[in-house]
Design a protein around this nucleic acid. Structure first.
Lengths: 333, 333
DNA sequence: CTGAAAGCGCTTACAG
DNA sequence: CTGAAAGCGCTTACAG
């Protein structure tokens, strides 16, 4: 465990000055290829690597980007994270994962700490960042991109919050003969939950079909279960548009307990394609999101913001519907 | 976007020397409480925070620990990561997540880079670290703790690979009247899959019951589905011991298609308690792993190693069975 | 094309 | 109990 070699050690070995070594590694300054080769060789022999803390101190840049997620969302975000990380790495940044509490106040404090610490040049948040916090940290050197903010500022509700698949699913169900619909949504502090609810109500109006209700289901299976369990026994065959697969799974269970056929009595659609969704009885029609591509895109956007470059083009194939057995024509019991 | 305040700024404002400010923030040196209060006040007014890069350079310590996971394993590791992160933070470390390819050679290169970069004081790997790599990086300042190594060195196969719950479930099924069992395992390059298979076969022998088969199910729902789908129609009521919830879910689907009752004709147990498992029809009996506690434990172990302290005691309540409707007495069709 | 030198913001002996 | 000073390993004007 000897001392790590420094640029000075490399310089001595290569017979050049320390600054020349630095120039070689940063690519700055015109170094002749002969000198350059000598330096690189000496560096390789010593297994030299630049000390990032020293570089960071001198340049006042950390090369770090924080990605913020709650533990819960992390469960669904492996691919998203992967996409973002790869883009960041290609851009010369190191990504640090910051998990925060789902609880508002606690999360606020932690985010504040992360932003003010100065350790990060950029922050990509997949959880809402309170406006006050954005205000308070305006003077920080950390460029913050939060997905909810992002929705507002860039009018980019066309991303993960795009509810178009929900409209497509409802139209398909209409074609199959459905005239009664029910919506169980997520938590309405999520833009995506609101977007899906809006898409539902406007599509109900446009198609001229009947809505049996719109409930806030908080993304939970319990909600799907309870709401379907307590529906009138003589309800007309209907299509449940659930905001995610959890809700849909709970609903299917309730239907099974009531002896209702799926999709005949109740057709149902989810969102997210959880691992077990394709294996439910019946398999669940749902929306697959290309989270990796989305993660990559958001990171590209953050980096472009940090460098004040023009934002990258938005990919338009981030979501697609997988049709499975939980959707079919309505049938009399 | 003004310049960040430094300890010198704080010193000026508090009317002390810069080193006094440093002493206050590191807790070193005997600073009178009056001076201390003045410094802290000035620091608060300026929103001063120590520059970590500068500190790191001076102390030659990075305060960083890398946690290594593959993207795949990340999906199951949210809680694990949370547990580890909290412990690290309490220990004064910052955790950086490093995702690596599941592909061997690529992963090797990346791990090598991470270890040799000198950016991390510790590395906690949930993927195997090749022995050659451990050898090659012996002179690095990064303390490496890999979970596979961990199994060997500390004989700690009693952790996530402990198959005891499987034995308990089989005994309970035996009490309920089951005399026919079937096992669909994971991938046998996972120690946990092997441990579960061994526990199954030895318990079959000990209880003197009949095994309808032992299959390598590669952790996949397809395996559960196919194997149950192709069982003889006149098979005796049996208990399926699936290596995880995916397999169990596929099996339940096959049983439903065959018109078999669960748990009467086929009782079934899984492992992992996936989010939808409690909402299947019937709800799935499974094993809940306290991944958060496990993650916390592994991080404690790493930090103890880094500080050459005695390792922490192993928690013994990392797994527990949740009994749900998929398990019951066998019944004639 | 290359070198000498300043300085990034800290920590920590060393004086006093 | 507090201060002056060296130095961690780099980058980057500034000379030459």
């Amino acid at each position: 465990m000897t001392r790590r070699p420094t640029s000075r050690d490399v310089a001595t070995r290569a017979g050049v000055s320390q600054s020349t070594v630095s120039f070689v590694f940063t690519g700055k300054g015109g170094i002749s290829s002969a000198t350059r080769a000598r330096v690189l060789e000496a560096a390789a022999e010593l297994h030299y690597r630049p000390n990032l803390a020293a570089r960071s101190m001198r340049t006042r840049q950390t090369g770090r980007i924080a990605v913020v997620l709650t533990t819960q969302s992390l469960l669904y975000s492996a691919a998203l994270l992967e996409g973002a990380t790869v883009v960041a790495r290609d851009g010369g940044f190191v990504v640090e994962l910051v998990t925060v509490s789902a609880e508002q106040a606690e999360r606020h404090l932690r985010l504040r700490e992360v932003i003010l610490s100065g350790e990060f040049e950029g922050l990509l948040s997949f959880v809402p960042v309170a406006p006050e916090l954005t205000e308070e940290t305006r003077s920080s050197t950390t460029v913050v991109l939060s997905l909810s903010e992002f929705d507002d500022r860039l009018h980019a509700t066309g991303q993960l919050t795009d509810a178009q698949p929900l409209v497509d699913m409802m139209e398909r169900l209409y074609e199959l003969g459905h005239r009664h619909f029910l919506h169980i949504g997520g938590s309405y502090d999520f833009p995506s939950a609101v977007a899906r609810r809006e898409a539902y109500t406007s599509t109900v109006a446009r198609l001229g079909v009947q809505s049996l209700g719109v409930h806030e289901g908080e993304w939970r299976a319990e909600a799907g279960y309870e709401i379907v369990r307590t529906l009138p026994a003589d309800v007309a065959p209907f299509a449940l548009i659930a905001a995610n697969d959890h809700i849909a799974t709970g609903a299917i269970r309730a239907a099974a307990e009531r002896g209702w056929s799926v999709p005949g009595t109740m057709s149902v659609t989810g969102w997210d394609d959880l691992p077990q969704s394709a294996w439910l009885v019946p398999p669940l029609t749902t929306v697959i999101q290309d989270r990796e591509a989305f993660g990559a895109y958001t990171m590209r956007l953050l980096i472009a913001t940090m460098r004040t470059q023009t934002p990258p083009a938005r990919p338009d194939d981030l979501q697609r519907i997988v049709w499975r057995g939980s959707v079919g024509a309505p049938s009399v019991r």
